[in-house]
Amino acid sequence: MRAAVIQFPGSNCDRDMAVAIRDITGAETTLVWHRAGELPDGLDLIAIPGGFSYGDYLRSGAMAARSPVMQAVIKAAERGVPVLGVCNGFQILTEAGLLPGALMRNAGIRFVCRTVGLTVENNRSVFTNGYLADELVQIPVAHHDGNYFADSETLDRLEGEGRVAFRYAENVNGSARNIAGVLNAGGNVLGMMPHPERMTEAVHGGSDGRRLFEGLLRQIA
């Protein structure tokens, strides 16, 4: 298995993501700088990590979504390569048009940084097959702009097509229909605000994030 983690100026979960992928899946994992015009050959997974790319200038994820490497990420996603965006990565994927909707300022204005319960709504994707349907898992969030918005038609379509991957058990940020993570139509792009890479070992306080990477390995290897 081969994986790439994209680094933007201001990414800060890039190394955590690379360590989680490498340790859990054994993938040969490359960090790719945002100015790269192309990605390494033969990738099985692309991860867009959390952080504050470009200092959240203009809108969270807006500048990163227009950087050169994202054209290559979009092409890879269109070919069916799994793309995982976590936190700022989710914001970047919506700004790049790979996922519908937008992540707005948290409804309570405050930065939310704690472990939250999530229900697994779709356990059939390449990312979520390590979980049971409707399972309640504990994964940390740390964001200011995690308030998922889409128009009601889009929300109905996402729900109807099973593209809501995770929902918050408690609505921590005002997200429409408690949505914490969504899939693209092809099921190979997942954006989620919670950080599975921060919940992969007992020392993290739990390992519910680990099964996302184990599930990826099972589907890809």
């Binding site: 203009l58 807006a62 227009r66 700004e95 909707g101 937008a102 707005m104 889409a150």
Partner: peptide, 8 residues
């Protein structure tokens, strides 16, 4: 393309 996010 950049300055506004037409979703919101």
């Amino acid at each position: 393309k950049l300055l506004a996010n037409m979703v919101i």
